[in-house]
Each structure stands twice: as C-alpha cells, then as structure tokens.
Design a protein around this nucleic acid. Structure first.
Lengths: 222, 222, 222, 222
DNA sequence: GATGAATGAGAGTTCATTCAT
DNA sequence: GATGAATGAACTCTCATTCAT
C-alpha cells in the first residue's frame, strides 16, 4: 500500500537540482513531465500488470493530474507501449562477434561477454522488462513483436554467427548450435520464468545455469 | 443470442451418457454443474486471461446463470484458482526412475519417456496451463506455489535422481546435472515462453530443442 | 432544479396499484423497468437535449441504478434512439382519403380531421417530439430518417392524394398543392419552430394559422 | 499536424491586404484576432453544434492559443452568444415598405424584394444561422430572444405594414395576413427545418414554395 | 498579449457481486 | 438449487478553464 515515493513535482535532475513543476510551457519541463509519467507507469505496470494499473494511480505517482497523461499518451494502451518500448532498449544483451579478439576462442569470448551480461540480468530492468513482455505479450502482440525484433532476433543472429565461426575453427564438434541458437539461450528465458513467476522463493542462478550450458554445448572431448 | 454450443443442461459425460439437468438437488447434478463451470472458465481464462474474462461470459458458456457460479465459488479469484489447480494435474510430465528397465541407460530412458512427453507438450493443455500460470502467477502467488509444488518440484526431483544414477554408472562425466537439474529442463520453459508469448509466428520445436539438450548434456566422448 | 418527481420504485400502474421494484426476475417487472427508463429518458431529453442529459440523471429519475440502464440499452445513443422511435408513433397525424365521406369536399374533410389534429398538436408529445428530432436530427441522421419515413412522408402522400382528388373534382383551381403538398403543411413546421425555439413568449396558434392556410389554399372565387 | 488552412497570423482582410500578427498590443491586431476566433468558432459551431465543439478545435482553427480565447470571451457560452449575435445581422431579410414604388402593388413589390431574398436564403449563412438558433435556442434563451428581436419581429412588422396597405388598396380581399403575418412567412421556417433537419436528401425549394404561398395569399378572383 | 501545459470535475461504461423470486 | 435483474464502485477518457511563463 505504499504509494508515490517520489512525486514529479519535486524530481531530482542529474545535477541534483530539485525542480518544481509549474504551469506554463517549456520544452525541458515537458520532457521532464513525460519522463515522470513514464517512470511512474513503468513502476506501476511492473508491480501490478497492465489490467490492474489505473491511470489515476500512475498520475498520483507521477505527481500529475489524471487528465495530463492523455496529453502525452492517447490511451492507456499507448502509455503501456511507450513505457515498454522505451525500456526495451535496456534489455539488449550484447555479444558482437566483431569484438572478439583475433585469437580468442568463441567460448572464451562468450564467457567474457555474455556470461557477464547474464549475471547482471536480474539487476533491475532487463529481467523485469522481459517479465512484463511475457505477462502481457499475448494481449499486446505489437509489443511482443517489438521485443522479438529488437531483443531476441539480434541476439539469435549473433549467436548463430559465433556458432558458425566456432564450427569452422573446429571449436564445435557438431552443428547443433548453428541450426538452433536457442540451444544456448534457453537457460536465460527459463531462468527468468522460474525466478519471476514460478518459484520466487528458490530462484535459480541464471548466470550459473548459463555457464553450465556453455560447458555442455562447447563440451570438449576429454 | 445464445452463444454456448453445448449447455450444461445436456452435457455428455465421458461414458457418452447425455445427462439432462433437472430441478431439485442431487450430488451428481451438482458435480456436473460444477464441472460445466470449470470447463467454461478454463476455456475463457485461456482465451482472454484473468482480467479480461467476465463471469457473465463464463456463465453463458457453461449454460448456467451468473448467480449460480457464486454458489460454487466465492469469487472470481476462487474460480480461477480452482480451475488452474484442477488442470495442473494434467500438466504432469512423468519420468519415474522406477520405470527404467534394468539395463536401460538413463539417456535411453529419457529419450523413451521424457522426449515423447515433450513432443506432446504443445498438444493442448499442458503448455497452456503453464502459460496461464506464468501470465497470472505474480498476481496469484498461491497458484504459482501449487504449480511449483505439483509440477516443477516433482520433475526436478526425478531428474535429479536419474542424474545421480547416471553419474554413478559413469554415464555422466560430470556433476552438472546432479547439482542443477534445471539444466536439462530449461528448454521446456524457454520453449513455452518463446512460442506462447514472444514469437508465435516462428515457434520453436520444443521437442527437437529438448533432444539437442539431451545430446549436449549426455555428450559422449567421441 | 426539480428532480425526479416519480421514481420507478413506486410507479403507479394503470390499475393504480403502486408497485415496488425488487431484485429478481419477472417479465412484467422487466417491462416496467424498461418503461421507467424510457419515460425518464424522454423527460430528460426533452428538458435538456441529448448532450446535456446524463445517464446518471436518467437513472435517478427512473429510480434505478446507473448500470442497469446498460442492460437495456447498449449506449446513450441507443437509449435516445429507442426513446424517440417509441414516441414517433404518437406523432402520426391521420388524414386518410379513404375515410372521406362520399359527398364530402376535400376541404371539409381536412377541416374535420387535420385541423382537429393540429389544434391538438401542442398537447404534449407530438410537437415535443418534432422539436427533439429537429434539435438533434443533424447529429442523429438515423432518427431524422425514421421521422421522415414514418411521419412526414405518409402525411405528404395523403395530402397529395387529397389534392389530386380535389383538383379532379374542380375543388382546387390550380395544381400548386398537387405539385407541392408542403404548401399546406408549412404552417405546422413553422409553428412548431416559432413556438418551441424562437418565440416561446408569444406563441403562434398553430391550429388557427393552419386554418388560414386552408382558407388561402382552397380560396373560393368570391 | 496543423489543420488550419489559414492561420490568424496571416489573415487576409477584405481589402486583400495580408496582415501579419506581431507581438505587442495594437487595436487593429486585437480586432483581427477577435475576428479570427469568431470566424473559426462560427464554422465549428455550424459543423458540430455547441456541445460537440471544443475550445481547442476553435483555437486551432483560428491559429491561436487556447488560452487566448478566454481573453476575448469569458466562457464557451459567451463565445457562442457572441458568434451568433454577430452573425444574426446577416440573417436580415429586407422588405421595407418605404422602398415600394408609388404605383407598385404590394404583391409585385414582394416578388421584387422578398422572393429574391428568399431564393438566396440558402446561399450560406442565413439559413445556417437560423438552424443554429433553432438547434441551440432552447438552451440559449438569450440568443433566441435576440434573433426574435432582430430578425423575426422586424420582418413581421414589415409584412404587417404591407398587408395593411394591400388591404386598404383592395389588393387583399381579407384580413388574414394583417392579423397573422406569419401566414406569409411560414414557408420560410418550414423550408429551413425540412431542408436542414428532416429531409436533407430531398430538399424543398424554399423560394418556389414561398412564391406559391404568395400566389395563394394574394389569390386574385379569376 | 499570447502560449499551451496543467488541472480536475465529471461523463459514459463495465462488471463482480447480491438477492428477491 | 437456479435465475438474472439490480446494484454501485471503479475505471477510462474528455474538456472547459486556469495560470506560470
């Protein structure tokens, strides 16, 4: 029942200057207000899901009048989409083959980049966004689509490219990962689901699980 | 105006005996009515999710009056819980070590049982129930808990036992699976999430993915 | 500011039996409730027009909960349409040539029927309905259309037929009325407009005006 | 996103001088701005009626900020009244007995003046203003009153004066028109109502109808 | 004067739940 | 047990009006 911890009316800017919102125009203020709304909405949507979030609560949390939200977003759906789309950028998991060092093995490269990313995945946003997309995706196909396009597909492509390289260099002894890059990534989605929906009390360590997967997939002959 | 194709008043039981509901009490009729409601509710919840399902629609689909639902379930939440709990039993995936043949390897046993189960996982209910639990789980912790207790935990235990046996017999060269049975099961959850929420247009073949996982986890030295 | 003079909860039936509405089904009660709503809505719409009438006020006036109105009418528009359509039947002005006595002149027939009708036109509903159709017609084309089809057109046709007969019998000395039956009816619309919209303080006597029109149109050579 | 085709900032006056609105006060600019608002409001009110017109749309159409409208008009109602009152002057229908030629009959004079006016009545504003007054008059008694005072009454008086003259000269054979000048004018209101509200698809030719009325009222003995 | 972001009081509509029959 | 009319709280969305800039 704890409500609005920090209202937009006294938001703190990056320079730590508290800013009191007043009437009257000003581009910065507009941006600020919009951000207050999106922040508040993100928090509410994460806490309660789409259907159980009310515009009134979002407004209160943002320190803003109910009607104002409709100046920025035509409808609750639009607000939701905007929130998720804005956050999706934070969900990127980066493993660009181009950044691999000349003599570095694919496995080493993945350990150096992806594993690190994944250990950090539950530090706030990334997993939460995934959770939100998963929970509301079937009622917001557009959002699921964006998530797929901006997060999943790029990751799949990169894994595929790395797998191809590893196969060529002999690092991989079979084509499994080239054919189905999800093989490597499955523990990520599985982990998110387990931890966020199914067994919050006994969470899986996603990073650890992923390393095991890496071990198994890149299993060297002894 | 009547939408329901099959009203509770003339439901057909499994033994193909059409049953006409009559006035007056009777234990069988009560059970029958209850079942109509649960069936209808399950269908609605699967189609539209909890928030977007109305009691009125459920009643109509069950061929029953709105008020009657409240004789069986105190509230919409209770109906939802009851529905999911009842269905969770169908979500069982069975791989009991006891059924393994004397000389059968664990890997062979898993291929014979689990893989088959998993190929069938998307044939109706199982994956759908998982989807429902995932989608509404954070708002119905009790349900998530039941799912964990009745579906996930038993499966984890069985995999653990099998892994232990495989380790002992030398079939497995390391302790990974013993320590973290999710390693084997990750593709199942990942697959459900991908197929049901994130990329319905390009579904993963969960069975295939799972077989690859089995290959990787039980990788034999060449 | 005078509100709800007679609530539906204590409506008086034709047999003067006050009826208290209670929960629970019953066809008569349903019809009664529906009528309460329509009556209340008619009154409100007449008093304030469509846009300024609120569902809440209608409900209060009908002695009914706001939400109940939506069981009977999908939307405010539907309520309005239903109200007007129901009332339009009362707007009929009957002058059927078939009822003219064998030797009766058209003019005498009109004096005997139409003039009487018109003197009564402002006794409650007829003129009020016309006023409502006029005031809201441009935003509810469907209603204007119904009014035209059910009230105006039939009247025009009947006048035309009578005019034709009068022309044939020599009662009319020219084709004006045959060609344009509105010539006879103009004072009706004009009168309604004047009295209801433009000059409520000094109303025209529509019946008298109409008689003069009859005199002028059927002017006998002296 | 800008809808307005011609913003107030560059309005073209009647003398075809484009005028650029600048910062700072100036009587002409004020008048100009006011006019932009009134023009825009008139158009909007005509298109959508009072209730469905928003200040925001008017502002946009006038090329002016929403708040500025409140510098000129205290409230939406005031704007509406001002608009209609200003336009009412255009609704005048002129037939001044003083302009009648010495030997000209009243009927001829009316044909020469009023009939011409009336044929022009549907060319834009006049009928539209009447329509607006009719549609909103019951909610804006002040406006209806002004319309009566400035448009209807003068016209009635002039007709009465002409009728009296015609009676005196023997041109009229009875007192009908003297007693009730609406007799002559009825087709105008009737026509407007028919054409604007009731049967837009099959409009009456108001001028023609009026001429017939003139024929009937001034019917000469053959 | 001019701007348009911000306000906030409703309005229409939905729906879980109740209860007289 | 069974019915579905009735309730009323809650929700989304609109818009006249205000006011800091």
């Amino acid at each position: 029942m704890h409500k609005s911890t920090q209202s937009a009316a006294t938001r703190v800017l990056e320079n730590d200057q508290p800013v009191v919102r007043r009437r009257g125009a000003s581009p910065e203020k507009t941006a600020l207000t919009r951000q207050s709304i999106v922040d508040a909405a993100l928090a509410e949507f994460l806490e309660k899901g789409f259907a159980n979030t009310t515009i009134e609560t979002v407004a209160k949390r943002a320190g803003v009048a109910k009607g104002l939200i409709y100046r920025y977003f035509v409808a609750k759906e639009a607000l939701f989409s905007a929130v998720v789309q804005q956050e999706i950028v934070n969900a990127h998991i980066d493993v660009d083959d181009a950044k691999r060092a000349p003599n570095e093995s694919v496995e080493d490269f993945l350990r150096r980049t992806l594993v690190v990313s994944i250990y950090a995945i539950e530090k706030k946003s990334r997993a939460d966004i995934a959770r939100m997309v998963i929970a509301e995706g079937s009622r917001f196909p557009a959002i699921a689509e964006i998530y797929r396009r901006d997060v999943i597909d790029p990751l799949l492509q990169k894994v595929k490219r790395l797998a191809t390289a590893a196969r060529k260099s002999g690092e991989l002894e079979n084509d499994r990962l080239v054919k189905n890059p999800y093989l490597l990534l499955a523990p990520i989605w599985a982990g998110i689901v387990i931890n966020k929906f199914l067994d919050r009390a006994h969470p899986v360590n996603i990073g650890e699980l992923f390393e095991m997967q890496l071990d198994a997939v890149f299993a060297k002959a002894p």
